[in-house]
Design a protein around this nucleic acid. Sequence first.
DNA 1: CATAATTTTCAAAAAATATTGAAAGTTTTG
DNA 2: CAAAACTTTCAATATTTTTTGAAAATTATG
Lengths: 174, 174
Amino acid sequence: MKLEEAKTQFIQVWGTLGTDWGINRTMAQIHAVLLLSPKPLSMDQLMEELSISRGNVNMNLRELIAWGLVRREIIPGERREYFVGEKDIWEVAKCVMRERKKRELEPLKKTIDKLVKVTPDPTSEEYQTFINVTKDIQKIADGVDTLLTRLTQVERSWFVEKIVHLFTTKKKRK
Amino acid sequence: MKLEEAKTQFIQVWGTLGTDWGINRTMAQIHAVLLLSPKPLSMDQLMEELSISRGNVNMNLRELIAWGLVRREIIPGERREYFVGEKDIWEVAKCVMRERKKRELEPLKKTIDKLVKVTPDPTSEEYQTFINVTKDIQKIADGVDTLLTRLTQVERSWFVEKIVHLFTTKKKRK
DNA sequence: CATAATTTTCAAAAAATATTGAAAGTTTTG
DNA sequence: CAAAACTTTCAATATTTTTTGAAAATTATG
């Protein structure tokens, strides 16, 4: 396969992945283009590459910067701004984990913590079910929180090489 | 807080969570209603509870069943069908992990496996970047695959109680 | 400070996604 | 097997999300 075709396919697959993850397609595609570019790119180059409007590039770049996946780069002597994507995919993954933990897990935990305090009524079956489910969610959410915190702390080499042994060790305890 | 209010809030927060995860709001809300119900519910009860149409309930229930989060329940002597939601949240989490692994991770891996075979051109900087990024994604995707496979095998008690120690053991190696 | 280069904003338009509801389909019952 | 009870489908509609593009804002340059 020729490089150009492969790049197109990559941009497409990364866009689909983004959509699956609730990230808009264009945002993911801009990220893909930056991932594959050895050099920083300007807004005009991104508009050209993806055939999209300036406003669209601008908004999605801002969002990518907020996620920590892209940063501005000023090239001395150049008037216009350039953008660089984080190329270490483990760093990208950690960014996404941190961001989603902050935006989704933490609000969930806050709400659930309130809900488990609902006025008790031990005779009601409805109450029992409610309290069981919410307390269960609370426990799992804590587990996910711990997992994400730990994962965002480990090095890429650890993740890539050691994760296979993660559960095997524990299983021996049985 | 009164139970009714708490239920409403729960349905709302679960719906938001669904939206964040690329699952449609109504599907998540139907799931929430079933989670909180001690008894199986009929389509009519769900329509009533969420003020949505029959067609909508039907389609979203079908999707929930496909995900393995809800099952049909036939009550002897009753003509109409009833539905029950899986209430063990760890089971719910495992369902979601399995389903997304199948729908997202596996297709990604398949495509990336093709893309890393792009025609080599060692002199091109573009080629180098492409191959570095795709091979990196390949490694991380394998790691994620392993992690998900392992996670979907462990018991809820393990996840809730032992996950805290997961990385501490490994860190001692340093 | 006036002009030019570039970025940002945001209302309007387009595209994508979700919902309705009525008709068609299916299963049960007498 | 006809009628009743219930479920499924899907074209039309409504809602939500994304994109555009031109005007406003900002920043650099002479």
